[in-house]
Design a protein around this nucleic acid. Structure first.
Lengths: 220, 220
DNA sequence: GAAAAATAAGACAAATCTGTCTTGATTTTC
DNA sequence: GAAAATCAAGACAGATTTGTCTTATTTTTC
């Protein structure tokens, strides 16, 4: 599943002085600049020349590494997704305790994400919103990203011995998407906590159902 | 609040023959074409010439009615929002019964919306995703739209005598946003029902809490 | 019917877009 | 050290972008 040795660090490089950093390839500079600009100002609105200017590289270099702008967009989405998932699932792996604690911690980690001053929403939600019917590669990338998430959610739900793991995974996915969009629009990270309470409510309900009324109010 | 006499019908006009329809102004044709193209193919990706070609109008006419493309985008968002809210709240007004039934019916109406073959997500979510920091007018339009929704949700919650109406409105807003995004990505309208079950769970929990444990399981 | 507004058609400008190509310098690799 | 890959700088092409302007026709209004 994790196929990456050549991950790229996509942190913001506004300050921009690569003098000290050793051996940052032109390709990496292009990817970093493209990520920042695409995610902050939109894919169609960001021109190749703007990316080159920010990256400080030549145009021929960009077209040496990427066949087209579409190709660059796909590459950026792939790396953005991989970087984000590494961070997200990594943070969740630190949570010890039962699967339920890990599932609820999802929303605490989301709140961390929302609280980043440079938070710009989910690149995949934004990309699908922008291209919709227009770009299949983008949709496929978004589907894949969501599938990784759903798979993880289902695994936790199974560990909790929830009867309908699909229903729980779908519910949590709705809560995650809703929290992301609400936080992006309002710039209020606390929507993660709102979503968390809804998740607690759902998990309590499906657990009490499965355990046949034995201990109806575990969470509260 | 409802200031509109000059609402425009924004239904899809793919077939396109205005011969029979009486007195459709050029402005309306432009608005209709722009709505369809902006919402389906993105705002930046849709050019003025494409809109004119679809509308069958002259360029001078467009710039006679709208100062710029940004101005046209704002006008489209305003009308899209107004049309949608008229439809949405109109459908909900048909629901008789207590406020709780109306709140849950939100998700049935959403499922209707998602089931439209031409469903392209929420124009405001899509627009903010595309422009993010780049366009204040778009953000303000999205904020206003969401405010209308929140106000309605709070009114229903108050009628239910829920203690913390803000918390309930925020929760339902997260569920609505999440359902929209999940349905848009998966093209599966049944995410509305997933969100509905989460809403039922939330309402049951805040109601049983308010009524001091008297009847804990009203909904189920 | 006359004045005023709305519209069509399209030329035009100035900027911007993606992508190609050339030339020469630098870096890496073996 | 030589061969190969990578990169910078930028000219260039061809298409497209938004927006202005002109001229003439149609529609509305009074």
């Amino acid at each position: 599943m994790d196929d990456g040795l050549n991950d790229i660090c996509l942190r913001d490089t506004s300050g921009w002085s690569f003098a000290a950093l050793p051996a940052v390839s032109a390709r990496d500079k292009i990817m970093s600049a493209a990520s920042h600009l695409f995610c902050n100002h939109g894919f169609a609105a960001t021109g190749i020349d703007t990316i080159l200017s920010r990256a400080g590289t030549a145009k021929a270099t960009l077209y040496h590494h990427f066949r087209s702008k579409e190709d660059l967009i796909s590459a950026v989405l792939e790396v953005e997704g991989k970087t984000w998932r590494n961070w997200f699932f990594g943070r969740l792996a630190e949570v010890d305790g039962p699967a339920q604690a890990r599932l609820l911690a999802v929303f605490d980690v989301l709140e961390e994400w929302f609280s980043d001053p440079g938070f710009y929403g989910c690149p995949f939600i934004n990309a699908v919103a922008e291209f919709d019917t227009g770009n299949d590669a983008v949709r496929r990338a978004a589907d894949l990203h969501k599938e990784y998430l759903i798979t993880w959610l289902k695994a936790q739900a199974m560990e909790m011995k929830i009867a309908d793991v699909t229903e729980t995974a779908r519910s949590l996915a709705v809560l995650i998407d809703g929290a992301i969009v609400a936080a992006q629009h309002s710039r209020d990270p606390s929507f993660a906590r709102t979503a968390r309470r809804l998740a607690e409510c759902h998990l309590a309900s499906v657990q009490s159902g499965a355990e046949d009324g034995r201990s109806a109010k575990r969470l509260k």
